[in-house]
């Protein structure tokens, strides 16, 4: 309503009032990895575009990706991708109404974290082995 004085309305408590828990951290990390992958896809498409462009431009992009900084970004991208994918699988299970048992939730959260680190390691070992 125009002219009605607006009082400061109370907001529901946000993250800072809760004790950090694994499941909560995993939820936050799922969102952060998603946002990271958003920009990571631009990198992937840049790589594809470079291949379509020319040999010299592709060499330039491969040189960047192959540098220590590029490898660091790629390592983060790999982990984010695996973590977000495994987290997504957990969400798909929850969508069916299953997997809400408190003990199981903890187990799945840990499996997601350990699985993402292990799979990232496997992917990088294979990548170095084939090159």
């Amino acid at each position: 309503m125009a002219g009605t004085p607006m009082k400061e309305r109370p907001l529901s408590p946000h993250l800072q009032v809760y004790k950090p828990m694994l499941t909560m951290m995993m939820s936050i990390v799922h969102r952060i990895t998603g946002a990271g992958l958003y920009f990571g896809m631009a990198l992937f498409v840049w790589w594809l575009f470079a291949a379509a462009h020319s040999a010299s431009y592709f060499d330039f992009v491969q040189g960047f990706i192959g540098s220590w900084f590029g490898r660091l970004v790629l390592l983060g991208f790999t982990w984010a991708l695996v973590h977000h994918a495994l987290g997504g699988l957990r969400h798909l299970v929850w969508d069916t109404g299953r997997g809400f048992d408190l003990k199981l939730i903890e187990v799945l959260a840990k499996a997601n974290l350990i699985g993402s680190l292990a799979l990232t390691l496997v992917i990088w070992i294979v990548a170095y082995a084939v090159r």
Partner: peptide, 12 residues
């Protein structure tokens, strides 16, 4: 992932 791993050090 397979595509990227297969082409990490590829030439154009």
């Amino acid at each position: 992932v397979f595509f990227c791993v297969a082409n990490v050090g590829s030439s154009q």
